[in-house]
């Protein structure tokens, strides 16, 4: 049975660590649906990687075990398995158009709570955060209205409630 897993990985923020993680996925033929990474503590010594992957339970258990044995990896957490969690993604969406389309794009953006972060007389750049489905839906609506460019961060995720992840 295939499943999607959102995995959070706490790693040393050092050269090559991302290459190690990505190399692990490509070398062993695992899927990466999305991957984000940035330093997360004040001293800049730790980074958190959020990777969304899919596979059978056996493969996902393998992925976690393989990640966990990398030397710079401190913690691996399967958010999907461990309980409720929030997932967010940020997207920048450029829509070019005039007249009625432009008005409609702005109206829909408002309904989706997308923010206008850049505007010219014939274009908008919308900023939107949400889960992947919401962004997908918004992009689908923008398509006939002049959608020309999309940039997405991929998911970041965190457990709900008091459960937390630390080194």
């Amino acid at each position: 049975m295939q499943r999607v897993a959102t995995i959070a990985v706490l790693v040393d923020n050092e050269a090559g660590v991302l290459a190690r993680v990505i190399g692990l996925f490509s070398g062993r033929g695992y899927n990466i649906d999305s991957l984000t990474v940035a330093p997360v503590d004040e001293s800049g010594k730790l980074s958190r990687i959020t990777v969304v992957t899919s596979g059978t339970d056996m493969v996902i258990e393998q992925i976690k075990a393989q990640l966990d044995r990398l030397v710079p990896v401190h913690k691996v957490s399967d958010l999907t398995l461990e309980g409720p969690h929030v997932t967010r993604e940020l997207a920048l969406i450029k829509v070019i158009g005039r007249g009625e389309n432009r008005v409609e794009a702005l109206r829909l953006a408002d309904a989706f709570r997308a923010r206008v972060v850049d505007a010219t007389t014939e274009s908008f750049v919308f900023e939107m955060t949400g889960n992947a489905e919401k962004i997908d839906a918004f992009c689908a609506l923008m398509k006939p209205l002049g959608l020309t460019e999309v940039c997405r961060t991929g998911a970041v995720a965190m457990a709900r409630g008091t459960r937390h992840m630390s080194a």
Partner: peptide, 8 residues
Amino acid sequence: IDPSSINK
């Protein structure tokens, strides 16, 4: 000793 060897 290697958890990734188990159930691989």
